[in-house]
Design a protein around this nucleic acid. Structure first.
Length: 310
DNA sequence: AAAACTCGCAACCGCCTAAAT
DNA sequence: TATTTAGGCGGTTGCGAGTTT
């Protein structure tokens, strides 16, 4: 039995326990104790540290808040993308999902899912676990996130770091948000010989970033023949092409789950800077919501696909 | 200005399982 | 082998802050 529901009571449990938010003093006490004795043995820690908390409470406080490598702040587009992808594979296995997002806790991911993703599902009057909702995520949100991911990460990185097509581990180290990127990942280099290379290509490399940790097992490839990047991200057959020379506006075109998705990247603005990214705006776009509504209320038939190349 | 409402998140609860006895 | 203990996990709750009416 865990201490929380045991019918017997020890000396420690008879003691009045603190509940609710942790105080600064409690945090200091816990941090100091762990610094001296290490983590683990949570019930012993709770008894010996002088904290009037349960072992469970101490563990949770440490893992979700005090641990030095806990990252705070808005989830980046690639983190959101990864959560969506991993949740579609594993469901509510929050701790498992969290293992692929270094510094993020299962609690944080769970909260994100419940407050953001499930909220969207509720507004759309569909079950968040329904195939219809998953399709909507795959067809609309993931491309949008990939668009953000592509513009904020790949482009910024390319613009700032590379004037040739070589990539070193040092460059990986200097990437923004590098801590969640697996440095061992390969880079996808576009065909520099393509006649459809973007304008002013000398100022940016054709190096695309590695996929985040956790996507490493998903095959992806460079593609000279279609000019752009073809991510075969999702085992369901979802794929996208990143067309570099199709204009300057971002345009999310409704597509079927099996069709390629095209969008344009804007090299001309600061949109590529992920440091100012506010994750919220990805989830509050009226236009996107309208599209989703029409998608989930409609039809299982395929949404018309617009081919930018035509 | 204040009440009502919404949202995000930290913390708790209860169940489960592996390890220890 | 049975029982107890500790830790981990997912679901849920409650509160404070921000926003809307």
């Amino acid at each position: 039995m865990s201490e929380a529901r045991g019918s017997h009571s020890s000396k420690h449990e008879d003691m009045e326990l603190n509940r609710g938010p942790w105080t600064v003093e409690e945090d200091k006490l816990l941090t100091h104790y762990i610094a001296c004795h290490g983590q683990g043995r949570w019930n012993l820690l709770a008894r010996c540290s002088g904290l009037k908390r349960t072992g469970k409470s101490c563990r949770l406080r440490w893992l979700n808040y005090l641990k030095p490598d806990v990252r705070r702040g808005n989830l980046t587009p690639e983190e959101q993308l990864l959560i969506l992808e991993l949740h579609s594979k594993w469901g509510n296995r929050w701790s498992r999902i969290a293992q692929h997002l270094p510094g993020r806790t299962d609690n944080e991911i769970k909260n994100y899912w419940r407050t953001r993703v499930q909220k969207q599902a509720r507004q759309l009057k569909v079950d968040a676990n329904s195939s219809k909702f998953r399709d909507a995520v795959r067809c609309y949100w993931m491309p949008r996130l990939l668009q953000k991911f592509g513009s904020s990460q790949a482009m910024q990185y390319s613009l700032e770091a590379n004037t040739n097509n070589t990539t070193t581990s040092d460059q990986v180290q200097h990437r923004p948000c590098q801590e969640i990127i697996d440095p061992s990942m390969q880079y996808c280099q576009l065909g520099s010989s393509s006649s459809r290379e973007p304008q002013a290509a000398e100022n940016r490399s054709a190096v695309f970033p590695p996929l985040p940790v956790g996507m490493s097992e998903i095959p992806w490839r460079a593609s000279d023949e279609i000019h752009g990047v073809a991510f075969n991200l999702f085992s369901s057959g979802f794929s996208m092409n990143n067309a570099y020379d199709l204009g300057t506006s971002c345009d999310l075109t409704p597509v079927s789950s099996s069709a390629p998705i095209y969008w344009d990247l804007d090299y001309s603005t600061d949109n590529n800077d992920c440091s100012n990214y506010n994750g919220d705006n990805l989830w509050s776009m009226d236009e996107l919501c309208d599209m989703l509504k029409s998608y989930v209320s409609g039809a299982d038939t395929e949404v018309p696909f617009s081919d930018h190349n035509s």
